[in-house]
Nucleic acid binder design. Structure first.
Lengths: 210, 210
DNA sequence: TAAAATATTAGACCGATCGTCTATAAAAAT
DNA sequence: ATTTTTATAGACGATCGGTCTAATATTTTA
């Protein structure tokens, strides 16, 4: 439990100078991301998200219609962030395709380690909670998986073209499988608080391609 | 939302004849299992569990110290149920080892289909929620995975002995990987409300052994 | 430059949820 | 017959989550 930040915030319409940059909203999204990747959607109260960054409730409902809308924005935000990451890693032409994938996984492992394996994947967390979530989240989450899958599929096609993986590999199917299993590994790593599941899966998947 | 069951229940000490059989407690556990596998722990209120089976609050706190104790019993219960299932399927000597695994997975798929892929795995659900759960759940969940892993490991050893899989397979590692990935597939199936991820993973895993 | 519009903070409020507690009831034990 | 045990019934208070209205400060506009 982080200590509260009882900073008094400026009321009223903000000065124009630093326009475009929405400090408070960004803080809320960052805070929400942290808590949601740890505890999930249902277990997380808005108050906790607010307390962490010392933002009053009124601000939250100024920036977001309600908790659901907030959640939806978090997903979009996470998706965008992740796509960038994937483009950089899986699309990195200076490395052979499969090494890119390995590098991506290693980065993810390091990332989880930095947070003591307490934070998981937002998409996985919310996916598991679907039963308690607004139905509109479903399509959103499915689509996120699809874009990730496309990125990996492209990378695998390159690997195939380079002869690094068998020519009869179904790259689309493989990419689908990768993300499915990866989410399982993230879940397990979070449960065990070790990189073991991730490491193990990484080796397994790479090997399965050869 | 299921309609309430406003059945008046027998008050007072129960007759001795049908002793040992604890109707109400069993109903609470069944009800809890249903709701928790759908919505998870945090999103589920005790009242909802009670409403489904028309049991008043007093009874709940008669049988369980509190929500956490209830959750813990659910895990034990689920674990026991599942171990039985695994013993029957993975230990079925009348089938070759790998076919047992395939059969188990197919049963699981059918099971999820019966509930329109709305219910997942209790262990997976709670695992993902760990950040919001009592710390004592962690060991419990890890141990459940371990017993599942042992069951599968034994089955894979049989397959190895029979020459159905490569002799240099690390059966323990494979079994660990299986459950990791399987949870990912269950999650995905729940999200997509289709058997696709499960089917896909089933084929993939079996193939990876050969 | 005064008024209107806009952007943001502040926090009161209501309903839901959790867990406790007391009352009631029926059977068993003494 | 009285007491003890086992169980249901549901009211209650504290707390918390989410919504909504008021207050405040800045920009825009006339």
């Amino acid at each position: 439990m982080r200590s509260a930040t009882p900073l008094k915030r400026r009321r009223g319409r903000p000065p124009k100078d630093q326009a475009g940059f929405n400090q408070t909203k960004a803080e809320l999204i960052r805070s929400g991301m942290e808590v949601l990747t740890e505890k999930g959607y249902s277990a997380t109260g808005i108050d906790e998200i607010l307390r962490r960054v010392g933002v009053p409730k009124g601000s939250f409902y100024h920036y977001f219609k309600n908790k659901d809308a907030f959640g939806s924005e978090l997903i979009s935000n996470y998706a965008k962030f992740f796509e960038h990451k994937l483009d950089k890693s899986l699309g990195n032409r200076s490395l052979p395709p499969l090494q890119r994938l390995s590098a991506f996984m290693q980065e993810a492992i390091d990332g989880m380690a930095r947070h003591q394996f307490k934070r998981g994947c937002l998409v996985g967390n919310l996916g598991q909670e679907m039963g308690a979530l607004p139905e509109s989240f479903r399509r959103q989450l499915i689509e996120v998986f699809e874009t990730w899958q496309q990125r990996l599929e492209a990378c695998l096609e390159e690997a195939k073209a380079a002869g690094d993986i068998s020519s009869d590999t179904d790259c689309k199917e493989s990419a689908y499988l990768f993300w499915t299993g990866w989410e399982g590994a993230v879940l397990r790593a979070k449960l065990e608080r070790t990189p073991n599941a991730l490491q193990s899966y990484a080796d397994f998947f790479i090997n399965s391609l050869k």
